[in-house]
Simulated scan of single mutants.
Amino acid sequence: MAALALVSTFCPDRVGLVSGITGHLFELGINLRDATFASLGTGAEFSAVCELPDTVTVEEVEASLSAQPELAGAQVKVTPFDFDPVPGPQAFVTHRVEVSGGDQPGLVARLSEIFTQFEANIVRLDAQTLPDRAGERYSLRFSVSIPPERVDTCLAAVANTAEALSLNCRTEAL
């Protein structure tokens, strides 16, 4: 099996980041496994579990990525990945939950506690402050793995919490 590495970058957001990073990794013979990209304010973060060919070290990947023009001024970190790269059953997304409305301090903590209470695993989380006609709208999107026997009560608890906070809630079973 190929060596595994976690490639992480953080830099100012700009057009061409994903193609620059992934194109360079491809040129090095690196295969991407799980990967994420997000704009965070005016910054951007890319992370990926990568399969390195035997001829490439984590140090070489870090040095070569750091030299890429798209990553000028970036924080680049490449480290060995010691976890199993094959997702377990808790990484299988069963539902998407979106909660939106006015920003509520502690909202992410409150909703994530509900998921924990019902033994639901958060697989992905995306939170954004978005402009709208009334000023700003906060949008949270959770991709979760909920045990089948807890789906109804878990989603009801999330919906009730959103309603109590005057937020919109939408769920989707996958």
Rank of each mutant, 00 (worst) to 15 (best):
A67E: 12
F118I: 00
I122E: 04
P148L: 06
L107V: 00
A74K: 13
A38H: 05
R141P: 02
V76R: 10
E149I: 06
S66T: 13
P147H: 09
R133F: 08
A164T: 13
R33C: 02
A3R: 15
A109Q: 12
A5K: 10
L71E: 03
Q104L: 02
L165D: 08
P80I: 02
E45A: 15
E45F: 10
E59R: 14
V76M: 03
F37W: 01
Q75G: 12
L167K: 03
I21M: 03
V123G: 00
L6G: 01
F83P: 03
S47Y: 07
D34V: 10
T94Q: 05
L125K: 09
T161H: 05
A35C: 13
L25P: 01
E163D: 14
E149G: 09
E27W: 10
L25H: 07
E60F: 03
D13H: 07
G101M: 03
E60W: 09
V97F: 01
I146Q: 04
L111I: 00
N121R: 11
D103I: 00
E59G: 06
G135L: 06
P12E: 15
V86A: 01
T129F: 12
R133L: 14
D34G: 05
E172D: 14
L4R: 13
L52G: 08
V15Q: 14
E27R: 15
L25N: 07
P69V: 01
D82P: 05
V144M: 02
L6V: 09
T36L: 01
E62Q: 13
G106N: 02
S66I: 06
T116K: 13
E113S: 09
H95Y: 05
H95K: 06
S39A: 15
V123H: 03
L4K: 14
G101H: 06
D132F: 10
A162V: 05
G23I: 07
T36A: 06
V56G: 02
T42P: 08
D84Y: 03
A67M: 07
P148V: 07
S39T: 14
A5V: 08
Q117N: 11
G73S: 12
I114R: 08
D54Q: 10
T36M: 08
T9W: 03
A63G: 09
A74N: 12
D84L: 00
L6N: 09
G106A: 05
P105I: 05
E163L: 07
G135N: 08
E172Y: 11
E62I: 06
P69F: 00
E136K: 13
F118W: 11
A159Q: 12
S139R: 15
L165E: 06
A127C: 03
Y138R: 09
G135S: 07
Q104M: 05
L125A: 02
R33Q: 13
A38I: 05
E27M: 11
T42M: 09
S39K: 15
A35W: 04
V58G: 04
F83G: 07
C169I: 01
Q75V: 15
G41S: 04
G23C: 11
E136L: 08
C50V: 13
G88F: 00
